[in-house]
Design a binder for these strands. Structure first.
Length: 434
RNA sequence: UCCCGAGUAGCUCAGGUGGUAGAGCAGACGACUGUUAAUCGUCGGGUCGGGGGUUCAAGUCCCUCCUCGGGAGCCA
């Protein structure tokens, strides 16, 4: 007789049939002659297995007593619908096999733990339902990003991680690069994205970036994933149109396809239902005036602090653009605002509910001489930017782009307090392992 | 780098004004035929982050160092 293997997520198709499920024990309960195994196999929901002493071989029944948390098991039984089971289906066990025993010292128990302890055990923490749910939302966001751009004719370009050029002034990780001197781990793919946009029109990058900043906040990682679209012939208004359409798409797609995971995470999805284009667009100068009215001591020319951001976003039910910052507060490659040369054509997109900046974007300076002046003004090494200036020398073009922080976006959609839970193995100032 | 906060059992924590440690969970054994982080009974479990000081006596007070967390700055 052949054996039918099934994953927990597929059990609805097997009601009244006998199947074999393989996975790991996440809870054990025993009540004399009836016992329960709650097991997990990576599906969205766990599976409750019901063992009744007189309905299974003596040997298998006794095997239950030796089971421990996180043992891997092979369970055969009849699939049946039952309201008392999480997920709506359970398995009436007729055979129980132990594949890999787990010693009694499994660190993560079904109770509260401290974050530091959990991060030390991240390789095991990943198995818990909450972490599985976050990982599945992250995957949905990633796939949605690819689908969104694929449907719109964008080309995905993978930019180098080892670079000589420096995109921004934030901290850099350095490494020896043969006889070429120092190379840096990429903190943005944007400059390469601009070159690619001149070749391919509309592109996006999707890759890891590295910041050696000694940041210790719930919004920062030293290694994080960033998505950086770059579009030829897009001005800043079109850039923002695309961003709000993009972010709305990601959120709505998670709402429809990852409802079970968001429920597991106890996310208040009413806060996400409202995320639909258009988003408010607040000029920086207006934002400063509003903030001053609310009691902030911000002055024109200052960048918005974290408190200012929260204050500004509090009035809205969806993400908010803050547009056209002072030139001195922003990166050298941003295009000067023709209506107010003190500012540049850019926007930060601030997620509501206090999740902060999830996108930074701008129209790029396309005037060769202005860009050159700006590089000199910032004191950046000119020889490293020769190829970047070539993009303005040989057929310059209007173009814009933005960078979306993947973990921040996932944290916001999931309603998770700290972005370190939104990547499988977070890299932070005090943590490189596991 | 700066400002707060925390280090006590495997884990989460409690330990007014100093008198050599306690709970819950986890674990072991037992009971229970539908449990949902099951429940009930019994038992085992500790260099109180390191060092120094005050004191008859320090988990507790003082100094110092270490580690970690949160926030600021920077940014996604």
């Amino acid at each position: 007789m052949s054996q039918t293997f099934a994953r927990i997520g597929e059990l609805a198709q097997f009601v009244s049939q006998t199947v074999t499920v393989r996975g790991w024990v996440s809870h054990l309960r025993s009540s004399g002659k009836v016992a329960f195994i709650v097991m997990r196999d990576g599906s969205a929901t766990p599976l409750q297995c019901v063992l009744v002493k007189k309905q299974m071989p003596e040997e298998d029944w006794e095997r239950f007593a030796s089971l421990t948390l996180e043992s891997s098991v092979v369970v055969t039984g009849e699939v049946r619908a039952d309201d008392r089971a999480p997920g709506g289906f359970e398995l009436g066990v007729s055979a129980l096999g132990l594949f890999g025993a787990s010693p009694l010292d499994y660190p993560i128990q079904p109770k509260e733990h401290g974050v530091d302890f959990l991060l030390d055990n991240r390789h095991l923490w990943l198995r818990s339902p909450r972490q599985v749910a976050i990982a599945r939302v992250r995957h949905e966001v990633e796939q949605a990003i690819h689908d969104f751009f694929y449907e719109r004719g964008f080309l995905r370009v993978d930019t180098p991680i080892l670079t000589a050029a420096i995109g921004e002034r934030a901290g850099l990780f350095e490494t020896e690069y043969f006889d070429e001197g120092t190379a840096y781990l990429a903190q943005t793919g944007q400059l390469y994205g601009e070159a690619a946009a001149a070749a391919f029109g509309r592109i996006y990058t999707f890759g890891p970036t590295f910041r050696a900043e000694k940041s210790k906040t719930r919004r920062h990682l030293t290694e994080f994933w960033m998505i950086e679209p770059e579009m030829a012939w897009y001005d800043q208004a079109m850039n923002q149109d695309l961003q709000e359409e993009f972010v709305s798409y990601l959120v709505q797609r998670c709402l429809t396809r990852r409802a079970a995971e968001l429920k597991e995470l106890e996310r208040d999805t009413s806060k996400l239902q409202t995320v639909r284009a258009p988003f408010p667009r607040i000029p920086y100068t207006d934002a400063v005036a509003t903030l001053q009215g609310k009691g902030s001591d911000i002055k024109w020319g200052d960048d918005l602090g974290a408190e200012d951001e929260a204050l500004l976003v509090a009035d809205y039910d969806r993400p908010v653009f803050v547009c056209n910052y002072p030139k001195e507060a922003k990166a050298f490659y941003m295009k000067e605002n023709p209506d107010d040369p003190r500012t540049v054509l850019c926007a930060d997109l601030l997620a509501h509910e206090g999740y902060g900046e999830i996108i930074g974007g701008s129209q790029r300076e396309d005037d060769h001489d202005k860009l050159l002046a700006r590089i000199r003004h910032e004191g950046l090494p000119l020889d490293a930017y020769g190829w970047y200036l070539d993009l303005r020398k040989y057929g310059t073009f209007v173009h814009s782009g933005f960078g979306l922080g993947l973990e921040r976006t996932v944290a916001w959609i999931c309603g998770v307090q700290h972005i370190r839970e939104c990547i499988a193995f977070p890299r932070m100032m005090h943590r490189v392992r596991p």
